[in-house]
Simulated assay, not measured.
Amino acid sequence: MMPLRYTRHDARRWAAFSGDYNPVHFDKAWVKAQGGSALSVHGMRALLDVKHFISPQSAGTPYLKFTARLRRPLWRDADYILWRAGKKNAAATVTAAADELPCLACQLVPASKLTLPATESQHVLESDELATLQALFASLLADARRWHFLDALLFRHLIQDTTLLRQQSIAALLPPCATPGALFQRYPVVQTHQELLFDSRLLAPWQPDASPQALTIDTLTALTVGDLQQGMIVRIAAATRWQNLPIGSAITLKVGPVAA
Score class of each variant (00 low, 15 high):
Asp143Lys: 14
Asp143Pro: 01
Ala144Lys: 07
Ala144Gly: 07
Arg145Met: 06
Trp147Cys: 11
Phe149Trp: 08
Leu150His: 04
Leu154Cys: 11
Arg156Gln: 06
His157Trp: 04
His157Gly: 01
Leu158Ala: 04
Leu158Arg: 06
Gln160Ala: 15
Gln160Trp: 05
Asp161Asn: 10
Thr162Trp: 09
Thr162Arg: 14
Arg166Ala: 15
Arg166His: 14
Arg166Leu: 13
Gln168Ile: 02
Gln168Gly: 00
Ser169Asp: 12
Ile170Arg: 08
Ala171Arg: 13
Ala171Gln: 10
Ala172Asp: 08
Ala172Glu: 11
Ala172Tyr: 04
Ala172Met: 09
Leu173Asp: 02
Leu173Tyr: 00
Pro175Leu: 07
Pro175Gly: 03
Pro176Glu: 13
Pro176Thr: 14
Pro176Trp: 05
Cys177Arg: 15
Ala178Met: 08
Ala178Val: 06
Thr179Ile: 04
Pro180Tyr: 01
Pro180Gly: 04
Gly181Arg: 06
Gly181Tyr: 02
Leu183Gly: 02
Gln185Pro: 00
Gln185Asp: 03
Arg186His: 06
Arg186Glu: 03
Pro188Glu: 02
Val189Ile: 13
Val190Ile: 11
Val190Met: 03
Val190Lys: 04
Val190Arg: 05
Gln191Pro: 02
Gln191Asp: 03
Thr192Ile: 14
Thr192Cys: 07
Thr192Asn: 06
Thr192Met: 11
Gln194Glu: 12
Glu195Lys: 08
Glu195Gln: 14
Leu196Trp: 00
Leu196Thr: 00
Leu197Lys: 02
Phe198Thr: 09
Asp199Leu: 06
Asp199Tyr: 03
Asp199Ala: 14
Leu202Trp: 08
Leu203Asp: 03
Pro205Ser: 12
Trp206Gln: 08
Gln207Glu: 10
Ala210Cys: 05
Ser211Lys: 15
Pro212Gln: 09
Ala214Leu: 05
Ala214Phe: 07
Ala214Ile: 03
Leu215Arg: 11
Asp218Leu: 01
Thr219Asp: 08
Thr219Phe: 02
Thr221Gly: 02
Thr221His: 05
Thr221Ser: 11
Thr221Trp: 00
Ala222Gln: 05
Val225Ala: 12
Gly226Asp: 03
Asp227Asn: 13
Asp227Leu: 00
Gln229Leu: 03
Gln229Glu: 05
Gln230Trp: 04
Ile233Val: 07
Ile233Phe: 01
Ile233Glu: 12
Val234Pro: 03
Arg235Ala: 15
Arg235Thr: 15
Ala237Ser: 15
Ala238Trp: 02
Arg241Trp: 09
Arg241Ser: 12
Trp242Cys: 08
Trp242Ser: 12
Gln243Trp: 07
Pro246Val: 11
Ile247Ala: 13
Gly248Ala: 12
Gly248Ile: 05
Ser249Phe: 01
Ser249Tyr: 09
Ser249Ile: 09
Ile251Trp: 10
Ile251Thr: 15
